[in-house]
């Protein structure tokens, strides 16, 4: 019985069908399934498959967005049914592209996948000054600040973010994660960021690690 529901949950996410995902989530809970199990063996499997298909060019951005929306809805329903002490790993993440850089397609993918994985995301857009990253993180009550840059010339802004956080005495309050085409683990290490993500899927894994660290 539960196997069938898990399969339906996976299908709903793969198809990006919000109505079906809502129905499956409610039905699963009504039938007494363990919400965490329903999430892990059903919906999360689905979104992981979506991530893999996207990464290999077999599923595309509009479908990814639909899947992410379906996932968001299912997560909302299931989260409400999980006792607080057993709640899934979740957290608040502020994400933006640094000042001087207007590239935001990669960031859009990251935001979709983050939301799909149950994180609360505040997308602060592109061309974002360092002060705004900090200001928005403070207002949003973020746990993590994620910054993206596609240009070698704007990478320095990620370094500046680290420095400004230190100056403001806020460095220990947040975990930082950096990404973007020219960014590497070496860069993250050099500037003192807490994590580096190679792509959106890697970002989800790293954020989960940061939240449980």
């Amino acid at each position: 019985m539960s196997e069938k529901i898990f399969k339906e949950a996976i299908e709903a996410i793969l198809k990006g069908d919000t109505d079906k995902a809502t129905d499956v989530a409610k039905r699963g809970l009504d039938e007494g399934l363990n919400p965490i199990e329903l999430m892990d063996k059903g919906f999360i499997q689905g979104i992981n498959q979506v991530g893999d298909l996207f990464e290999t060019g077999r599923l595309f951005l509009p479908q990814l967005v639909y899947s992410a929306m379906a996932m968001e809805k299912a997560t909302e329903i299931i989260n409400a049914a999980i006792p607080e002490e057993k709640a899934l790993v979740t957290g608040k993440v502020v994400v933006g592209t640094v000042e001087g850089d207007v590239h935001d397609i990669g960031k859009t993918i990251v935001v979709s996948l983050f939301k799909a994985n149950g994180f609360e995301v505040l997308d602060i857009g592109r061309d974002v000054p360092v002060e705004r990253f900090i200001d928005q993180a403070e207002k949003f009550g973020a746990h993590i600040i994620g910054s993206s840059t596609l240009l070698t010339t704007t990478m320095a802004m990620q370094k500046q973010l680290e420095q400004e956080l230190k100056k403001a005495g806020l460095r220990e309050k947040y975990k930082t994660i950096v990404g973007g085409a020219p960014v590497t683990q070496r860069w993250a290490d050099r500037i003192g960021a807490d994590a580096y993500a190679q792509d959106a899927g890697d970002g989800v894994k790293k954020v989960k690690l940061l939240l449980t660290a």
């Binding site: 509009p62 639909y66 929306m69 207007v102």
Partner: peptide, 18 residues
């Protein structure tokens, strides 16, 4: 947007405006 005349798909996609 902000560099050209067309609305930015990056702004529309997260809103589901496929």
């Amino acid at each position: 947007v902000p560099d050209g005349p067309v609305a930015n798909p990056g702004d529309m996609l997260p809103l589901g405006k496929i």
